[in-house]
Design a binder for these strands. Structure first.
Lengths: 241, 241
DNA sequence: GATGACCGCGTACGGCGTACCCAGTTTTCG
DNA sequence: CGAAAACTGGGTACGCCGTACGCGGTCATC
């Protein structure tokens, strides 16, 4: 908590610290980006910084806090760069959703950290402020706005998860879609031929032939986001009159 | 894979196995339900069954496969109990979404397993068949149906994640919402008073005062699902003509 | 210059997944 | 019927992990 907001006070006695929280968190994020969250261990991060493992504990109570700090760090965000309330609530929500989507893209490990709670660090609060400001023109009560926002964020997380699964499958075992179907295929063909899945068996062949990770993954995300916002728009119109 | 579909053949020689895959997976699910996925270790599961740790490896190549099997096992599902295509695509999608939602409710660890890929076991395929059948009346091409389904599933996963975060926060540290605000509050109050977050500061006080876990969590889920399906309905109408 | 606070970090403990290997059991074959 | 083969159970050990503990060196203060 204090770590997140940087309100801890330096004691005056004793040697100056050779490290900073920032450097530690930065190193951890670098490792996570490059090798996945699984590679982020206290030993590994310490090695990255050329210090002993236990030195990190002078700056952090434990690994959990490190993960919390990583989460808030990558949420850094400058509202001035993005459309304000005058652009309309839909544009703002789209901006937030796409920003979050790209965040998941840049840091795929985001979904894999045990996020025991939505920790509110400075950057997260900053983003929240931006969003609420963007919804100021909406004729709903505050709690309802928050709910809609949570729904959109939830959708983004879900979509990111869908894509992450594909990406991980490929990375982890070095298996591509093609190889995967080679392994999985026979079992499925057998299942299809069993006659227990008539509707599945009748699907056209190209049904599953698309890439979740590239442009088509983005298209899927946008399709869902568009539908969700359509529904929300109708709701706002109906309720807000 | 073979494990999932149960197509492995028993060798004739040697002693009969004292365990079954089913018992192992069942024990693992029991442990996960009761104490979270973190408590599921090979040693723990073996202890639960009263056998040595390494005995499990006679039935499973490793822990990853155990998790895969757990996932498919809890996806057991009897299509006959649920509305068929005659009820309309929306009802079917709602059924699927609510089923998945309740599944996450019953097995909160579902989201925490590193689902490297959407493994298609018999139960998952079964559910997929049901859904596709339910969409047979929709005037869209097959790939598009699948995409809409993925979007809905993604939304459910995201919503479940939102709720999971709240639940975990409470369980993990035994901290309730109230205590949490006691800790987090001062920092946020300070942030609010800094004047950097005018719109947040102006939110009514009850904005965040709702329980993600109980009925209000369900209401949030239903609200989002309704909006999403509204948007999908408009889309189908527009495209399917 | 002594004192006490603080930093870096080596060592050690208890957990984990699992590779390896041996002993015991059951079936099959000569 | 005895021996060999095939299989199961599981003990031991290795290399990871997070981190509790404590020690020696460093620096601001009295």
């Amino acid at each position: 908590m204090e770590l997140l907001w940087g309100t801890g006070e330096r004691p005056t006695r004793g040697p100056k610290p050779g490290l900073t929280l920032d450097r530690i968190v930065g190193a951890a994020v670098t490792v996570a980006d490059a090798e996945g969250i699984g590679a982020v261990s206290m030993r590994r991060v310490a090695a990255e910084l050329g210090v002993g493992t236990m030195s990190l504990y002078r700056y952090l109570p434990g690994k959990g806090e490190l993960l919390d700090l990583m989460l808030d760090r990558i949420a850094a965000f400058d509202p001035a760069e993005f459309p304000g309330p005058e652009a309309g609530w839909r544009t703002v929500l789209e901006t937030v959703a796409r920003g979050s989507w790209q965040l998941h893209h840049r840091h795929p490990w985001l979904l894999q950290v045990d996020q025991t709670r939505p920790l509110l660090g400075p950057n997260s609060v900053n983003a929240l402020e931006y969003t609420i400001r963007g919804l100021s023109g909406v004729a709903l009560r505050d709690p309802e706005k928050i709910r809609l926002l949570m729904i959109v964020e939830g959708y983004v997380a879900g979509a990111a998860r869908t894509r992450l699964n594909s990406a991980l499958a490929e990375k982890r075992t070095g298996i591509t879609d093609e190889e995967w179907w080679k392994i999985q295929g026979p079992f499925l063909v057998q299942a299809m031929e069993s006659g227990r899945y008539p509707h599945l068996a009748q699907l056209s062949e190209d049904t599953f032939a698309f890439d979740d990770e590239g442009d088509e993954g983005d298209a899927l995300f946008e399709l869902g986001l568009g539908r969700l916002l359509d529904g929300i728009a109708a709701y706002i119109e109906r309720r807000g009159g």
